[in-house]
Design a protein around this nucleic acid. Sequence first.
DNA 1: TATTTTACTGCAACTGTGTTGCAATAGCAA
DNA 2: TTGCTATTGCAACACAGTTGCAGTAAAATA
Lengths: 125, 125
Amino acid sequence: MGISRRTKSVDLITKEFESISGAISTTELIDRLSEQINKTTIYRVLEKLEDDGYVHSFLGKQGITWYAKCDNCTGHYHHDEHPHFQCTECGKVDCLPITVQIPKIENRTIDKTNVLILGKCNMCL
Amino acid sequence: MGISRRTKSVDLITKEFESISGAISTTELIDRLSEQINKTTIYRVLEKLEDDGYVHSFLGKQGITWYAKCDNCTGHYHHDEHPHFQCTECGKVDCLPITVQIPKIENRTIDKTNVLILGKCNMCL
DNA sequence: TATTTTACTGCAACTGTGTTGCAATAGCAA
DNA sequence: TTGCTATTGCAACACAGTTGCAGTAAAATA
C-alpha cells in the first residue's frame, strides 16, 4: 500500500530526494525536516514511497537505514540488486551502477543480495 | 587491545562459539548467557575476541550484529572478506567459503566489502 | 604465600533508531 | 459542502548497544 494522498509531508520528502545526489539516511532526513514533519511521519512516508518504487532502502555501515531514489534501477530490476558504496572519510553513500556476480551456492537458494562497499570516494581520495 | 585475562566470561563465551555451527547474534548470545554474564560484559568480551582474531562481526538482515568463529578465514585474510548467508525462513546465519568478485570502481578505492545473501538454507528448501 | 596492580565485571542509567496506539486533521470523491 | 478515511502528531514505548563508576578478581611481583 503506497501513497494515496498528496500531502505536505510527501511533497517535502520527495523534494528532498530530488535535490540530493546519492542516498540519504533516515537520521539525516529527520534532522533536515524535523521542524516541518514529525519523525514518525517521515518513517511512514518513506515506507510508502518504497512500496511505490520511488525509493529503495538499504543498511549503511552502522546498521542504520538509508534511502535512495536510484536512477539506475527501474521496474522489476528495482529491488536494489546493485551494490552501495559508503565513503569511510565523509560518510557519503551512493548507488553503484555495476553488477556483482554471486556464484551459485550448493543447497541454497538466493532471494536477494545486499552488497555494501566501504572505501574512499572521489572527493576524499 | 584483546583479551589479557582468562575469566569466567571469556570461557563461557568461547565455549558457546565452540558448540555452534555458523554464526550467532549478540541478542541470542545474551539470551543464552544472561543468567551467567551481564550483557555489557558480553558486548565487551566479544569486542576483545574480535581484536584477537578469534571471531569476526558483521551485520545481519535487520542491522543487528552477528559474530562467527569462521574456520575459513585465517591470518590477514581474516577481516570477513567472505559473504554471509542468512536464511529467510529459519534465520540461521553462516559464513560462505566462496569469494565474491567486486569489479574495480572508477575514482574510488575499496577498503572492505560486506556481502549479505538472503535466501533459503538447505534445511528450509 | 601475601601483596599489589589493574583488567575485568555488574549495575544503573543513558543514547539512538525505529515502532505503536490513538485522537485529531485534512485530502479528495461524491 | 459533506463524509469517508488516509494521514498526521504526540507520547510512550521497544530494543540494541554504550558509558561511568565502584567493586572484584586475575595474575604479576615481592
